[in-house]
Design a protein around this nucleic acid. Structure first.
Ligand SMILES: NC(=O)c1ccc[n+]([C@@H]2O[C@H](COP(=O)([O-])OP(=O)(O)OC[C@H]3O[C@@H](n4cnc5c(N)ncnc54)[C@H](O)[C@@H]3O)[C@@H](O)[C@H]2O)c1
Ligand SMILES: NC(=O)c1ccc[n+]([C@@H]2O[C@H](COP(=O)([O-])OP(=O)(O)OC[C@H]3O[C@@H](n4cnc5c(N)ncnc54)[C@H](O)[C@@H]3O)[C@@H](O)[C@H]2O)c1
Lengths: 230, 230
DNA sequence: ACGCCCTTGTGAACACGCGCACAAAGTGGG
DNA sequence: CCCACTTTGTGCGCGTGTTCACAAGGGCGT
């Protein structure tokens, strides 16, 4: 419309902010549980480990929900963040791969309490079919399309070995799933419009190893008071 | 210090680059397994899902290991990246919390093959002490300091419930561990010089839910034909 | 030996995110 | 009613990271 207008993706919340909102939400819920009614950006920032100005800027993307001189009303902010994140509705999740990780995930209680319902746990190995994990019976992978359709699954979790991950992903996408959480150590290929997030433990360890090595090498790095290599 | 000198932290590799090196490494190892001797930045970039210029810039931080007109020698690059990441030595890892997740991690074979040795699996619950997981006997949490010392543990993994995480972390730090991988949904407090990385599945799901909601809202955003998030 | 073509390595422009610092706005006390 | 104090919301400069585009460099065919 207006040529000199820097507006193309303004209705969008910065990705970095989106990644922090769940952290704020969790801290706010802890405050709420303790019966605390309001909180300042300074205090909330401290408990979530971020800069208070950054926190305020993050929240300002949702609207002006604070009161100057006072702070933010805990319950109201919980509601606003939840709404923004889409947590006022329930989401169905399907997990593929009922191995070590898939079972741990299915057994994990922390999902249901946040509005994520595990609709199915699927596997290709007939030896595990019918096993009961967390009250859920392991289904066959060929039921994937049916499950996605019937249970209205919108998030697919991949906990299979690496070689099977792309194929499972393709089936998810084909079935209409547009959000995938991948634990297999492979780069998934997906069409535009599909979001993939990956959790890769080996990479995390390798990053830690890199920094660990840095500390070990006698690097007189920045931060002279750095509590050095203890 | 010196105004015209851009040298203060030059020997350092950008954090974003460090996070990608393990991805390149994995792709290179796959090429190596297939007997492929050299690879171009274009090709490697495609299989790892990054921009080829970014890949070249990443690799240039390690040195000039490519040959113009040809590409990179796979084996040599594997060696250089491994060295930079500190993977030419072995690292001892201690896991605390022998629940669903801790056991899945201990059972996972993908760590040992990359130079990470699980030195111990510890828990506070006497009911699980002595259980054998992946050839490892679950030890008591009070042995943490001993284990760290004796096995030369440099990376601590926290797979306990949230309430116990900070305390376990403190004990790790006190014992001399300077790298922590945390699975519990809490913000850990550590002194300078200690690296913490977190893996938080609930946050990953919430981020996916946010984007999912975005897609569902009939947002006739920019770019009617997808290409949106990816 | 020479020149063509391929690929690297990087300069420069751009986009994004961070944190300081402060004016605006609201509260509570006198 | 006014003033002093607290805390929000944000303008701005800075640093980091990404991408384009291209000159420099090296192999290979002739
Ligand atoms: N266990 C961990 O702690 C851990 C850590 C890091 C990464 N990972 C990754 O997570 C994934 C799963 O790990 P895991 O330890 O649970 O492995 P696992 O071998 O215990 O389980 C994998 C499961 O996937 C099933 N499967 C195989 N092919 C399938 C297919 N085509 N369709 C459906 N199911 C299929 C198998 O039958 C098996 O039950 C792997 O990619 C692994 O690299 C696991
Ligand atoms: N299981 C999952 O898939 C999953 C997913 C996301 C997050 N998490 C998080 O990972 C952590 C572990 O999850 P889990 O499912 O394995 O839980 P879990 O309850 O199965 O296991 C926790 C283990 O920690 C032990 N423990 C408790 N206090 C301890 C202490 N002070 N010192 C040592 N050990 C102690 C318990 O005895 C238990 O064996 C939790 O914080 C959870 O929120 C787990």
């Amino acid at each position: 419309m207006t040529p000199p207008e820097p507006r193309p993706r303004d209705r969008g919340i910065p990705e970095a902010t989106v990644a922090r909102l769940p952290v704020y939400l969790r801290a706010l819920q802890a405050l709420d549980d303790r019966g605390i009614l309001t909180v300042s950006s300074e205090h909330l920032a401290e408990t979530t480990g971020v800069n208070s100005a950054k926190l305020r800027k993050d929240l300002s993307h949702l609207g002006s929900y604070g009161t100057r001189g006072v702070g933010y009303e805990v319950e109201y902010l919980i509601y606003q963040i939840s709404r923004e994140l889409g947590l006022t509705q329930d989401w169905s999740v399907a997990i593929v791969g009922a191995g070590n990780l898939g079972r741990a995930l299915a057994n994990y209680g922390g999902f249901g309490t946040r509005g994520f319902r595990i609709a199915a746990l699927l596997d290709a190995d007939t030896a595990v079919l019918g096993d009961t994990v967390a009250g859920l019976s392991v289904g066959h992978i060929d039921a994937l399309e049916d499950v996605v359709d019937r249970e209205n699954v919108s998030i697919g979790v991949i906990a299979t070995p690496a070689v099977a991950a792309q194929e499972v992903c393709d089936r998810f996408v084909e079935a209409g799933v547009t959000s995938v959480l991948n634990f297999a150590p492979v780069v998934l290929n997906v069409p535009p419009g599909v979001d993939v997030r990956k959790v890769d433990l080996s990479i995390e360890l390798q990053i830690l190893a890199f920094h660990e090595q840095r500390k070990a090498d006698g690097y007189a790095g920045l931060d002279p008071f750095g509590k050095g290599p203890v």
